[in-house]
């Protein structure tokens, strides 16, 4: 019975619903901009990771290495771009 019931996927689905409702709270509840954005950022990244691992089977094929390398590479580039832009356009702008 245990093999037949896709417990991992059901749990994943429930968890992604929870993440969505937490993100929705930002709109419903009255909170500060900073807090709202922090919640959105965290839930968004958790959601993306969840989808990638559970529903897109990132770690289940022989290409595991290539897939995770490209994901990490993408994250590094994105972080460098965003923070570099903030640095050049806002923080370091005189």
């Amino acid at each position: 019975m245990k093999e037949l019931f896709p417990i991992k996927h059901v749990m994943g689905f429930v968890f992604s619903l929870i993440l969505t409702s937490v993100a929705l709270l930002v709109y419903i509840l009255d909170m500060s901009f900073a807090l709202g954005l922090t919640i959105l950022l965290i839930t968004a990244f958790a959601q993306a990771a969840l989808q990638l691992v559970v529903f897109m089977h990132a770690g289940e094929s022989e290409d595991k290495g290539a897939i995770y390398t490209s994901v990490y590479y993408g994250i590094i580039i994105a972080v460098l771009t965003v923070f570099g832009t903030l640095l050049a356009m806002i923080w370091g702008y005189v």
């Binding site: 590094i76 580039i77 460098l80 771009t81 570099g84 640095l87 050049a88 370091g92 702008y93 005189v94």
Partner: peptide
């Protein structure tokens, strides 16, 4: 990798501070 972290050198004169330009 490095090619993604140098782009500001195309507009050094746009008004960022010395710190940013040095990086």
């Amino acid at each position: 990798l490095l090619s993604f972290v140098v782009w500001v050198h195309h507009f050094f004169t746009m008004g960022q501070g010395a710190m940013v330009n040095s990086i």
